[in-house]
Computed example of a mutant assay.
Amino acid sequence: MFLGTYEPRLDDKGRLILPAKFREPMAGGIVITRGQDRCLYAYPRVEFERILARMQDASTTSKRNRDYMRVFLSGASDEIPDKQGRVTITSNLRNYAGLSRELAVIGAGTKVEIWDLASWNAYLDENEQAFADISEEVLPGL
């Protein structure tokens, strides 16, 4: 399970050093792809394979399904972290998410989200009140 927020930097070669807590589950491979809200999703390879299997069960006669799978899979990058826990984020994914050197890497349960730090902070500012307002709807009785 991935939890927490970390603020690493991209190096000059477009590499991210994974937070130490995230390295072991991603040691066998990581798949980075486009996410919603202009962030990137990073999955351990095993989790990505589970998602891919579910996608293959989806009807390809549905244009919406085909469109989603194309966008999700066409930007995917398969990486193996090096000994320092670094993975390369491809230029097309860096451009998609508008990544600068300053990042926010957040644990989101079964995946990790990679955000430009300024975009993440703006997202939090915009959604903080909604977070409070919908808590009862999302998690009744909490």
Rank of each mutant, 00 (worst) to 15 (best):
Met69Arg: 13
Phe72Pro: 04
Asn95Met: 10
Arg86Met: 06
Asp82Gln: 05
Arg70Tyr: 12
Pro81Gly: 05
Ser74Phe: 10
Leu93Tyr: 06
Thr88Trp: 06
Gly85Asp: 00
Ile80Lys: 14
Asn95Tyr: 00
Arg101Glu: 12
Val71Ile: 14
Arg101Ile: 00
Ile89Lys: 01
Val87Ser: 04
Asp82Lys: 02
Leu99Ala: 05
Met69Leu: 14
Lys83Arg: 14
Gly98Asp: 12
Leu103Ile: 05
Ile89Tyr: 01
Ser91Pro: 09
Arg94Pro: 11
Arg94Val: 10
Gly85Tyr: 09
Asn95Leu: 12
Thr88Cys: 08
Asp67Asn: 12
Leu93His: 07
Asp82Gly: 03
Ser91Gln: 14
Ser74Gln: 11
Asp78Pro: 04
Leu99Met: 04
Gly75Ser: 14
Arg86Asn: 09
Ser74Ala: 15
Gly98Pro: 02
Leu73Ala: 14
Arg66Trp: 07
Ala104Cys: 07
Val71Met: 13
Val87Asn: 02
Val87Lys: 01
Thr88Asp: 05
Arg86Gly: 01
Glu79Gly: 05
Ser74Arg: 08
Ala97Phe: 02
Asn92Tyr: 11
Ile89Ser: 06
Arg94Gly: 07
Leu93Val: 09
Phe72Asn: 11
Asn95Pro: 00
Arg86Cys: 03
Arg66Thr: 13
Ser100Met: 01
Ile89Gly: 05
Asp67His: 13
Gly98Cys: 01
Ser77Gly: 11
Gly98His: 06
Arg66Ser: 07
Tyr68Ser: 00
Arg66His: 07
Glu102Leu: 01
Glu102Cys: 02
Ser100Leu: 02
Arg66Tyr: 11
Ala97Arg: 03
Arg70Pro: 04
Ala76His: 08
Asp82Arg: 03
Asp78Lys: 02
Ala76Gln: 09
Arg86Val: 11
Leu103Cys: 04
Gly75Phe: 15
Asp78Ile: 05
Ile80Asn: 13
Glu79Arg: 12
Arg70Leu: 12
Val87Tyr: 02
Tyr96Thr: 02
Glu102Asn: 10
Asn95Thr: 15
Arg66Phe: 01
Ile80Gln: 13
Arg101Val: 00
Arg86Tyr: 05
Gly75Glu: 06
Glu102Ser: 08
Arg86Lys: 11
Met69Thr: 08
Gly85Glu: 00
Ala76Gly: 10
Leu93Ser: 07
Val71Leu: 14
Val71Gly: 06
Arg70Asp: 11
Glu79Met: 10
Gly98Phe: 12
Thr90Lys: 11
Glu102Pro: 03
Asp67Leu: 11
Ala104Ile: 00
Ala97Trp: 01
Lys83Ala: 15
Ser77Lys: 10
Asp67Arg: 14
Asp82Tyr: 03
Glu102Phe: 00
Gln84Ile: 09
Val71Ser: 07
Glu79Ala: 06
Asn95Lys: 15
Val87Asp: 00
Ala97Val: 06
Arg66Ile: 07
Asn92Gln: 15
